[in-house]
Design a protein around this nucleic acid. Structure first.
Lengths: 233, 233
DNA sequence: TAAGATAATATGCATGCACATATTAACGTG
DNA sequence: CACGTTAATATGTGCATGCATATTATCTTA
């Protein structure tokens, strides 16, 4: 049924949401207490609480003890975007996936990453250059450093079968990470790999992941021309 | 206290989280029932439910009625990124914000957007070109179409004082939208506006928002060289 | 009057219970 | 044995209640 079922917490959430969208409750304005709303909807306070909590999670209302609940002044402009494993992304749009390891060696951690990695400066890290293909056309170029202290088993893997991306996701789960997106011009090396004219603007992503305090990997992905990262809000 | 308080739902969540990270429960493996966990932690099933629900929300476990709860095979690679109002973004990094409206007129909806906007093809839309500055240096260039049917008040506004971005957020809240990110090369016009050499790779974002079925605005933002969009995961 | 103690209040959270619902397993029946 | 029916089960949700906690308002007291 499409009608709002007014004594399920989702139903109540929809009603509240509409009141906010319709400006019945202005931004910044305080809305009735849980107890009052519970009475209005003829349900338990717990149920209203659940609905309000959900709205607060998505940032639409701001709640403070004693101060009450008020409509957020700046509705959140949040987007959750999914960072898929490249193979899955390619396959989900109907392409056939393949990757090729261009380079693989042990080397000291580059100075650029000393700040980010912080730990294990002395140890060598595993360095990988990988090219990802969709339907035999270059899709993305990957440069990755793997901290062998965090993933010792990686030392003996070629990553020719399963990509480092995928292997790490399944074998060295991270607890948190930093992510950033930016644009780069294709230099001569990149242009060859990604089949792009030199200078073409390319979409790039950089990511560092940790398991607790231990850095796991640093990866920079540069996508072939025309790539768009999409999401809904 | 840093110790996990094992009968608050957050405490229980931490314990479960650790078991997943430590591979005590393998990916894909089924974890004990709510009732069993409740007994183990000496709390109510509701409390365990809350913890598990939270883990399910963040994608770490997958829950199905009767089938039970199992650890997700592909840990989610989700990132929530905040799309701030540009003024706030600039000010949050300590810059002084200013914007300037370069162009403002009514025009028919460009063919490019017919598909996206779907509705109100006959009507004129409000077109705006705006340049955003941080510390008097170009920060981002914005091209925007506003559906006057969704925001009639916009017809009489110059958007010189408050930017369209900000005005719309406060006066025409959207219910949902599409968002995409990509890279573009600076053409001659852009290079002048953003103080970038022609050809420079620039980070860009495109967004369409709706209030229900009614399209509100289409905006393309192109950031000055060096811009990075960051987030944590 | 200013500063500190105290009360009032709204949300936050835990509990025990009951029932709803989706999904799987077991069971019969042709 | 195949297929549809039924039972069992784990999660999902709602309710009433009590207490916790943060924050504001009020009341004391120097």
């Amino acid at each position: 049924m499409t009608l709002t079922d007014t004594n399920s917490w989702t139903g109540i959430r929809e009603v509240l949401l509409r009141r906010i969208h319709d400006r019945i409750w202005q931004p910044g304005e305080q809305i009735p207490h849980e107890a009052d709303l519970a009475e209005e909807f003829g349900c338990a306070r717990t149920t209203v609480n659940r609905a309000l909590r959900d709205l607060a999670d998505s940032g639409l209302v701001v709640r403070k003890r004693k101060a009450g609940t008020r409509v957020a002044v700046n509705p959140p402009q949040r987007a959750t975007l999914t960072i898929p494993i490249i193979r899955e992304e390619v396959e989900s749009i109907g392409g056939s996936y393949r990757h090729s390891v261009l380079e693989r060696d042990l080397r000291p951690l580059p100075a650029m990453l000393h700040g980010a990695f912080q730990v294990s400066l002395g140890e060598d890290v595993l360095f990988l250059k990988t090219l990802h293909f969709s339907n035999e056309r270059p899709y993305a170029f990957e440069e990755r450093y793997i901290n062998l202290e965090a993933a010792p088993a990686a030392r003996d893997l070629s990553f020719k079968e399963v990509s480092a991306n995928e292997w790490l996701v399944h074998n060295a789960p991270y607890s948190h990470g930093d992510l950033s997106f930016f644009a780069v011009n294709a230099d001569d090396k990149l242009s060859g790999k990604l089949d792009a004219a030199t200078g073409t603007a390319l979409f790039a992503m950089e990511r560092i992941t940790w398991a607790g305090d231990l850095p796991i990997t640093h990866v920079r992905l540069i996508f072939a021309p025309g790539y768009r990262m999409r999401t809904e809000i």
